[in-house]
Amino acid sequence: MAQYLALTYTADVDWFAPPQAAELAEYRQFAKENEGSIRASAVLHPTSTATVVRVTGARGGDVVTADGPYAETKEALTGFYLIEAADLDEAVAIAARIPAAWNGAVEVRPVLAVK
């Protein structure tokens, strides 16, 4: 078995606000139906709450923070699922059930096994 991070790119909204309730319910449904494959997951606050951290020079240097996400993209990174699957085809099949897949996009990235 291998692990994949499924990153959800969707509308940049407050996913716990009432207008998103119906769609959020679909995400909960996905999580329930695929709980055997999901090792971890999270919904993120909108990108307006993000902070980019850089350190000048080397470790211990000046800490510089900037408001906003690392990259401005058409859809925003709004959540993730850490999925366990036998191979990419299985990971893709699971990712295709995430609502973000038809309301945005899902990036599936293999996780490097760290011993």
């Binding site: 291998a2 994949y4 036998a86 191979d87 990419l88 085809d89 293999p110 490097l112």
Partner: peptide
Amino acid sequence: AAARIPYRVP
């Protein structure tokens, strides 16, 4: 190799 694209007939 990294993404484990399976070696099989669909």
